[in-house]
Computed example of a mutant assay.
Amino acid sequence: MKKTALLYWGKGGNVENAAKIIYRQLDPQTTDFMPLDEFNPEDLDQYSLVILGGSTVGAENWEDTSNDNLWNNFFRNIQHKDLSHITFAAFGLGDQVLYPAHFVDGLGFFHEEISKTNARVIGRWPTEGYRFTDSEGVEGDYFYGLALDEDNEPEKTEERAKKWVAQLKKEMEE
């Protein structure tokens, strides 16, 4: 039976906490939960759904191809693979108050990189109810994945995660 992988980076902060909240909505018998530095991209074929999670960072960090940028390493390892048999979804963290012009920009990076692999992408999330001015993680009225603001709206994370995971389960059946 195919499984779900929930991969997140960085460790020990809001991203990991949000990943744990999302993980609690999934079946632990069929879900592997791990930080990105413990995942081998060669294992992708074991999964039917891969959920990625990260925080918004400046564009200069995403473009930095140094060996210590784990997301860049991950996407370099999969960029030439045909992953049309795998479905991806993403969640991103940002700060609508301090960085309203870059809220969850990381979702845009995830979407751009995943799209290069021919993988199916699910989990778009409505922008309604958020207070930001711009985002690379938005197309139309939807984020490319679940947008979370643990700095200003931590009380909304649990409910958003529940609704989003229910949405993912439904979309996986389509």
Rank of each mutant, 00 (worst) to 15 (best):
G54S: 13
D64A: 12
R76W: 06
E42N: 05
F91E: 02
G140R: 09
F143H: 12
I22E: 07
D141F: 08
I51W: 11
E158D: 14
D95P: 14
Q79E: 11
N118H: 11
L26H: 09
A90L: 09
E42F: 02
K81F: 11
N67V: 15
F75S: 05
E159S: 06
F39K: 06
K2W: 11
N69Q: 03
G54F: 03
F110V: 07
A119L: 09
Y8T: 06
E136T: 01
F91N: 05
K170D: 07
T127Q: 00
N73F: 07
Y99T: 09
A90E: 03
Y144K: 06
F132N: 02
E158H: 09
E112C: 04
T56W: 14
K116Y: 07
F143Q: 13
H80I: 08
L6W: 01
L6N: 04
T30P: 13
F91A: 04
D32F: 03
A119F: 11
Y8R: 04
T87E: 10
N67Q: 15
P41D: 12
E128P: 01
F110Y: 11
G13N: 12
G12N: 08
D64C: 15
H102I: 00
L107V: 00
I51M: 11
R120Y: 04
P28I: 04
E158F: 10
F91L: 05
D151Y: 08
N17P: 02
A166W: 01
T157L: 11
F39E: 08
E150G: 01
G140K: 13
D149N: 00
S84Y: 14
V104K: 04
A59C: 06
L70M: 13
T127E: 02
G94M: 03
L107P: 00
E174L: 10
E150A: 01
D45E: 13
E113T: 07
P154I: 04
A166S: 14
P126R: 03
I22Y: 07
F143D: 13
R124W: 00
F88D: 05
H85P: 03
G10L: 11
L52I: 11
N152S: 04
E158V: 13
I122N: 14
V15Q: 00
F110Q: 01
R76C: 05
F75G: 01
D134S: 10
E150F: 00
T133K: 10
Y8F: 15
